[in-house]
Design a protein around this nucleic acid. Structure first.
Length: 289
DNA sequence: TAATCGTGGCC
DNA sequence: TGGCCAAGATT
């Protein structure tokens, strides 16, 4: 049996990183904030911002009372700033409809903005100890190798991926087991250079037993960044994050030479609610003026 | 389903 | 040096 529960739980107990959102005193709200911030963003960059957020907004209702601009400014350069607005909207829903308590139930969590299949189950498991399949990119890679003997996970399929993990979950300490699977993928069974010599389940890993064949699935789509709207939007937002007062459009025009792309991006930021235009025609983060 | 949405560090 | 990668969600 690959990915033996007791083996991984024991390995996790002695190896796991001491992350603040894993500490027993961390609230469910703290777990939720961490999971949103960690979507596509490395732990090292999240940790300092997470501390600031929890100190400033210890409860959902505290964040719900903040403006969009304050939240976006505090989000800093974590990337994908729409996550900050969705988290703010989730905080408002929790404060207003749920008595300021983060929901325990997966389906209720799924109904909140910015919370999808992974985050809903991560919160249910890590904040409340619920037994449910928590499947992120690390877990998909670990299962692809250790269970299926492949070099890497193929294209995601939420139904199949969750099924693969569901059958592995132990009845006791399922949440710790899920955390261990993720930690194994993050520290040992990594994408580029897996540290198989340090792996606690080396002997039963089907990939290793197969002779570590290369990934043979469809080629992964690599996202471009340089020159894309994503880069331009980031540059525009960075100007507004760096000023306390609204700015004239010429300040924004300076960040990108292609006027057509620049204006399209500014429009999309306005549509997304990430930027606001004042009555005087100036531009600023929303809700601060 | 596939494209879109930031940012920065690493090998 | 630059492609690859990082605890996804949404449409």
């Amino acid at each position: 049996m690959s990915l033996d529960a007791q083996t991984l739980i024991d390995w996790f107990a002695k190896t796991a990183r001491d992350l603040p959102w894993r500490r027993p005193e961390c609230t469910a709200w703290g777990v939720l904030v961490s999971e949103i911030m960690l979507q596509q963003t490395p732990v090292a960059r999240v940790e300092p911002v997470w501390h600031e957020w929890l100190a400033r907004w210890p409860k959902p209702s505290d964040m719900a009372a903040a403006s969009h601009g304050e939240v976006l400014r505090a989000w800093g350069k974590l990337g994908y700033p729409r996550r900050a607005l969705r988290l703010h909207a989730a905080a408002q829903a929790i404060a207003t409809d749920r008595g300021d308590e983060v929901p325990h139930d997966v389906d209720t969590l799924l109904a909140l903005p910015g919370i999808g299949a992974y985050t809903a189950r991560a919160v249910a498991a890590f904040a409340y100890g619920k037994k449910c399949p928590v499947v992120d990119t690390n877990v998909r890679r670990v299962v692809a190798r250790a269970v299926h003997g492949a070099g890497d996970a193929g294209p995601p399929s939420t139904t199949k991926d969750m099924n693969d993990v569901e059958v592995l979950l132990p009845d006791e300490k399922a949440a710790v087991y899920s955390a261990a699977l993720m930690e194994l993928g993050a520290l040992v069974c990594t994408a580029r250079t897996p540290r198989c010599a340090d792996c606690p389940v080396f002997d039963t890993c089907k990939w290793q037993l197969n002779g570590r064949p290369a990934y043979d699935g469809p080629a992964k789509v690599v996202q471009k960044f340089a020159g894309t709207d994503r880069q331009v939007r980031g540059l525009l937002l960075d100007v507004l994050r760096g000023t306390s007062e609204p700015v004239e459009k010429v300040r924004l025009d300076a960040v990108w030479s292609d006027a057509g792309q620049r204006d399209r991006c500014l429009d999309s930021l306005l549509v997304d609610g990430l930027v606001e235009q004042t009555a005087g025609g100036l531009f600023a983060l929303p809700g601060e003026h």
